[in-house]
Amino acid sequence: MFSTSYIIKFTLVMTIIVALVLSLLVSGLKGVHTENESVYNKKGILSAVSQQLGKDINSMGNKEVQELFSTSIDQKVINLKGEVISPEDIKAKTGASEPVDIDWGKEIKKPENERLLPVFTYKSKDNKEYNILYVRGKGLWDEIWGYIAFESDWNTIAGQAFDHKGETPGLGAEIKDNKAWYGQFTGRKIYNPEGEFKSVSVVKGGVKIPDHQVDGISGATITANGVDEMMKRGLKYYESYIQKNKKS
């Protein structure tokens, strides 16, 4: 029927056409893709202060998000010692020009002395400052992460937004979807009156210390434990930076 040379020619021609069309499409859409990704990350950060914004972030268009982010958010990158990294160093170390575009999932896997952490500061219309910190940990299936916004005292949680890569819808995914659950964090404190770091724990069977505990999610113990763990470890990384800024 068909000779071997025909088969080879056929596959070659097809491969070339397919690769060509796809690479054209990819390079054509690249700008839109990177913008979308950036907007998605920015939405994640902004949703930590959604209450203070007084707007529904999800209904905003790309342009609106970009504008809101650039006018109201101040971005910083620090290391674990609490030192602020200069923009040139950020570029050299991560290749990203803006902290929001850094792949923080990769950053968290680096050894502690090289690891960078973001601090986003949101300035509201009535001139209040909220600092948004980033935590990342493991859920049941895959990674989970969150942006935690603090009042200017660096202690009281003003808002939060969790997200996940692949938690079970209806169970673990509640950390992102169920406002009644994640809303519990608002108003909790991470330091006790003596100034000791306590974080906010996720506990089963009723909250006993209202300042430092929230209720777990039934059916999603492991995801809830993951949130508990990442709140403890992730916020601890910021400790030296928080101490520096608290005093001043």
Partner: peptide, 22 residues
């Protein structure tokens, strides 16, 4: 060609799926 039919079909499908994804 009959002998590479499956792969050709799969490549067509995979190509279209990639386009849709992009």
């Amino acid at each position: 060609p009959k002998s590479v039919r499956m792969i050709v079909q799969l490549v067509i499908i995979a190509f279209l799926v990639t386009v849709v994804e992009l």
